[in-house]
């Protein structure tokens, strides 16, 4: 080991270090330049995509009314509320769409949620999340938000469910109960077994409870924010 090291060290004279260093620098510089060029092209496209997605989601969440411009929200009390769009009908605000942030299983997630002015959730959509693929991904599907829709308002019957017990209670309470959320439902007959759509809830199996916690927490904060901002005025 020692004998091998010594002649090696002797070879490292100043000139050689300079040569090797400059070559390394050239490669690094070229790649950094190249990357910033590509970045200059891809970044605007990425931003444009995000804007387009926001616009599309707005139109899905709010069926009627004029959607105002995006406004940033800096609330000390409701840190989860990032920005808002006020929806007006004949000049009067009727609803509001909030951009909400929550903390999911695999990192921050971002939601867009439309509320009536009494805090009732109209609809919500999960925008960005970095959940582990497969786990907790369900939250992106439309049906997932069903359990939150129409809840949380001062006028409506149910508060927003913030834990699974509350949700199970509400499921039992509403006799309409379209799909059972917390049991893997066995197919009733052969035809259903053959052609039925996926049932049961990945959440219960994967234990990706945090997605639910993050989503419901953010939605609840949004509802409270709406109540505090507009609740008195109505």
């Amino acid at each position: 080991m020692k004998q091998e090291n010594k002649p090696n060290k002797a070879n490292w004279d100043f000139k050689q270090i300079l040569l090797v260093g400059s070559k390394l620098f050239v490669i690094a510089a070229i790649s950094a330049t190249l990357l910033s060029l590509i970045y200059a092209v891809t970044e605007p496209a990425k931003q444009e995509n995000i804007l387009a997605e926001e616009k599309e989601t707005l139109s899905v969440l709010i069926a009627s009314g004029d959607i105002g411009p995006k406004e940033a929200v800096n609330s000390m009390q409701f840190k989860q509320v990032i920005s808002r769009w006020i929806v007006r009908e004949a000049g009067n605000p009727v609803a509001v769409v909030l951009q909400l942030a929550g903390n999911g299983y695999g990192g921050p997630l971002s939601l867009m949620a439309g509320y009536k002015l009494d805090g009732e959730l109209i609809n919500a959509k999960l925008m960005v999340n970095t959940e582990t693929p497969g786990l907790g991904k369900k939250a992106e599907t439309d049906a997932y938000m069903n359990k939150f829709r129409g809840k949380g308002g001062t006028g409506s019957g149910y508060p927003l469910p913030v834990n699974k017990e509350m949700l199970a209670e509400q499921q039992q309470g509403s006799s309409a109960g379209s799909t059972t959320v917390f049991q893997v439902k066995r197919p009733a007959n052969f035809a259903e077994w053959l052609f039925g759509k996926p049932k049961g809830n990945v959440d219960t199996v994967t234990g990706a409870t945090i997605t639910f916690t993050a989503v419901s927490g953010a939605l609840e904060a949004g509802s409270d924010y709406v109540k505090q901002t507009w609740g008195g005025a109505e």
């Binding site: 299983y105 994967t206 234990g207 990706a208 409870t209 945090i210 916690t213």
Partner: peptide, 10 residues
């Protein structure tokens, strides 16, 4: 290890 989920944390 799936027994350790976020419910445990909570």
């Amino acid at each position: 290890f799936m027994a350790f989920d976020k419910a445990l944390l909570k």
